[in-house]
Write a protein that binds this DNA or RNA. Structure first.
Lengths: 326, 326
DNA sequence: TTGCTCCTCACGTCACGTGAGGTGGC
DNA sequence: TTGCTCCTCACGTCACGTGAGGTGGC
């Protein structure tokens, strides 16, 4: 047994709160307090060596409240532990909070959108059956681009940062963009985090250097399904449905990385060869073209059995969901 | 082996997408698709019996998108499964969506508040040290009340519903409230879900029946720490700190259930005996009094050793947090 | 034939919650 | 002494993600 602290001055001498009272007054569950103790986030002011009872002081409330408010801002407890070791007035914490502010701003925006959509859906008694967008099949010419490729932690932010870097490089080296920016998805399947992205800007063949960006030529693609749509990713549902239905009826299958071309991504328009009518229909909106290399299917036609039944008898789901609302 | 479906008409005959392509085009990870298959939420149109490869059709995108949008609204996957079995235009779904709308509205509100607080904190170079609110020690007289007690799933909503019921009972039975409503926390420690709450309205002793509500008399409390504050639960941090510090310096310990008295909970004020000055200072705001029965501490003074060191040597935390921001 | 795609299975993550079984405190 | 409070330990939750080890498909 180690024994110390018993020679301390009187400042340590004070009444304390048992865990249940501390829990009630601070509005935090006992389980949470024990959890924070284990993580070393909030260690009780005193722990009885025999009974292991935890005792807390009033002064510990402020640390607890800092933990809770950081947690509510969306930081992980591990992250909170780090922040609490920093100077709360220092630059590091300030920067983190500023980043978090932008974060929450974005979250609010998507929340508002979702709410608006939900309300629209509730107002309409009958859903407006959206006409599915139509695609075209065409070859993609080789394109000379300045590009940056990386695995990014967050899809949207990562893409934006890549584009900013490429554009900064172009600025510095005096390269002019000759067309709208493109985004390539290199992963064979979709992933939200750790995606392998390549952001690029078309340039002329005269460009010799692009700083940190790479100059390369996108290969010729003999056939690609291309689909232009307006609006952000909230449109993806219909775009995907439309494109896939289109591919399916034509017996085409994807064979290469997906491209997104940002034809109009700012209110001033951009350099595009879009039909003028499209732009008039969607003034100031985001206009994107999706392009996916395809080839004819191998004519290996798979016929679909009534799979729901087949699956049930051959391989029952391991964790069946209990049905029924409420 | 069960075999069927091979006599189906041609409608089942169509090309399909392998899981990676379906994933890319629908912007959903392969892991998620397999997960939904396992749960029976989205079973592939065809599963090769030999290879167990999953094949999806374009038509399955719309079901997937419904799953995703319901999930994003905050429904659990189990709940989503239930909703998908209902008529999407039926009353059940409509009611669920309306509830969810209110839910999201509330979430947006707290998000906005958090953002505002964060921004305020970022604007101030120096924090305004809040003066801690002050409590008073006083006896609580017995009070005749009409009350409803229940375990509630959600704290805030549960309390509100209880109050609505009590007030409806009072209306129906013609009882007049003789004071501001009270909320009692019966749990020995705090809990967010499943809390044991009692909502009550003071009434006269003449009342003989209160419908579904119970008529009872709150017992006399010889000593309670009472603290009046304005604002909502976002004030709790300071209130708790103030109250606990106040208790601690006076060597008082809580001995009974916590009461909240809603002195002013609507913009029109209410029936109160608050100092007029307080009301003038906080016009139209929420004004709450916290009351907690106390008694003198047993003079068993626990002296706090330097616990951080003691704990480290005697019981190292099992899952230490790796420190350092970013 | 080779590498690529897909498979299953087991375990991890995150912030606790649940419950069993047991001991200290007044 | 009795019930109440608190303890630890192990496991569960939720919606997947990670990675090992292995097989089918072109």
């Amino acid at each position: 047994m180690v024994s110390f602290g018993w020679n301390e001055p009187n400042e340590g001498e004070e009444d304390m709160f048992r865990i249940s009272d501390f829990s009630r007054l601070a509005r935090v569950s006992v389980k949470t307090l024990r959890h924070y103790d284990r993580l070393g986030l909030l260690v009780p002011a005193y722990v009885d060596p025999a009974s292991r009872y935890r005792w807390y002081t009033a002064r510990q409330v402020s640390r607890l409240q800092r933990i809770l408010s950081l947690r509510e801002l969306g930081f992980s407890l591990e992250h909170v532990a780090g922040i609490l070791e920093e100077d709360p007035r220092g630059r590091t914490v300030r920067r983190l909070l500023e980043l978090k502010r932008e974060d929450i701003g974005r979250q609010l925006e998507t929340g508002r959108q979702r709410l608006a959509q939900l309300e629209a859906r509730l107002r309409e008694s009958e859903p407006v059956e959206p006409r599915l967008p139509d695609a075209v099949l065409q070859p993609l010419p080789p394109i000379r681009v300045a590009s940056r490729r990386a695995r990014v932690a967050d899809l949207d932010r990562g893409a934006q940062e890549l584009f900013e870097k490429v554009e900064a490089d172009a600025m510095r080296t005096g390269i002019r963009a000759t067309g709208p920016p493109l985004l390539l998805y290199h992963d064979r399947s979709f992933r939200e985090s750790g995606a392998d992205l390549e952001a690029m800007v078309p340039v002329t063949h005269e460009a010799r250097s692009a700083g940190g960006s790479t100059l390369r030529t996108l290969p010729f693609v003999p056939a690609a399904a291309c689909l232009v749509y307006s609006g952000g990713y909230e449109q993806w549902a219909e775009v995907a449905r439309g494109l896939m239905a289109w591919l399916q009826t034509r017996r085409l299958v994807p064979v290469g990385p997906l491209r997104e071309v940002f034809l109009q991504f700012q209110s001033d328009g951009g350099t595009l060869e879009l039909p003028r009518q499209f732009l008039v229909e969607h003034p100031g909106e985001l206009v994107t073209e999706m392009q996916i290399p395809v080839r004819a299917s191998e004519a290996r036609r798979v016929r679909a059995p009534r799979v729901q039944l087949a699956r049930r008898s051959s391989r029952p789901s391991r964790r069946p969901i209990r049905r029924g609302v409420r």
